[in-house]
Amino acid sequence: MGKVLELENVHKAYKLGFILKKKPVLKGVSFHVNEGEIFGYLGPNGAGKTTTIKCILNLIFPDSGRITIFGEDSLRPRARQKVGFLPENPYFYDYLTGREFLAFYADLLGIHGQLREEKIKYFLKLVGMERAADLQLRKYSRGMLQRIGLAQALLNDPALVILDEPMGGLDPIGRKEFRDIIVNLKKEGKTVFLSSHILQDIEMICDRVAIILAGEIINQGYLGDLISEKVLFTEVIIGGVPAAEFSHLGESVSTSGDRVLLKVFEEEKIDRVINLVQQNKGKIISLLPRTETLEDIFVNMVKNQ
């Protein structure tokens, strides 16, 4: 599996106004993205996610370090030949209609004539924007801009698709559709670089992740390696038994009516909980073992830093 994108020790600092003092934003970022995978780039707001992406796309220049796309130095425009990009909060020429907008980018990418029309039609359908195609972008909602933006990113049939917070402005249905599109891109053999702070999305679809915090990569690897299968605790919802009965077995999180939500940390105590419920003629409504999630890892790391 070849490396599609590689960053080696990338540093970037922004100047603060007229004062010569510089604020470091990226402090030696290194990671690589393998061919054909969905790579999640995770970090809280202000961690340096967008700055990293801008460095990759040559919108800002790193102070030091090296970035290669398909083995080509990212400073060369040719390196971006097979790259598609959807920015966070996409901003586009709002006086163009959706169709004109795609035509403009197709022209820029050297796609003309019949092929251009076919591609526009295909991608409008893919992102579900056929009906709004002849509406000016100024009349689009944020979710619609996100969709047309994705179409724009895919026009040149890119081998690497870079998406910066792609699901930010979408409703739950939209997010599911976007996830499906991203998974399909992987099936087509494309590599996807996805930056997000919505952990569920990353957990659901990404193969590998890198976590960035305050400009430094603090962890990276396969999701399976990062998340342990160990059961952290078991959530038990019990009906008909007062919460006080379980105080020695676990932590009662909430009660509503005659229902109790109990957090049991030791596995051997679960049987005792079940026995106690049966003795009190109550019932177990649900029993859910909770394994570690990406969110747990993420929150722990942020806390530790």
């Binding site: 801008k54 796309l57 425009p77 040719r78 390196a79 901003y91 980018y105 990418l109 724009q152 870079i162």
Partner: peptide, 14 residues
């Protein structure tokens, strides 16, 4: 200012 340059310059143009 309107950040339209982001998508434009992310394409392979000088």
């Amino acid at each position: 200012d309107k950040k339209t340059i982001f998508t434009l310059l992310s394409k392979p143009i000088h």
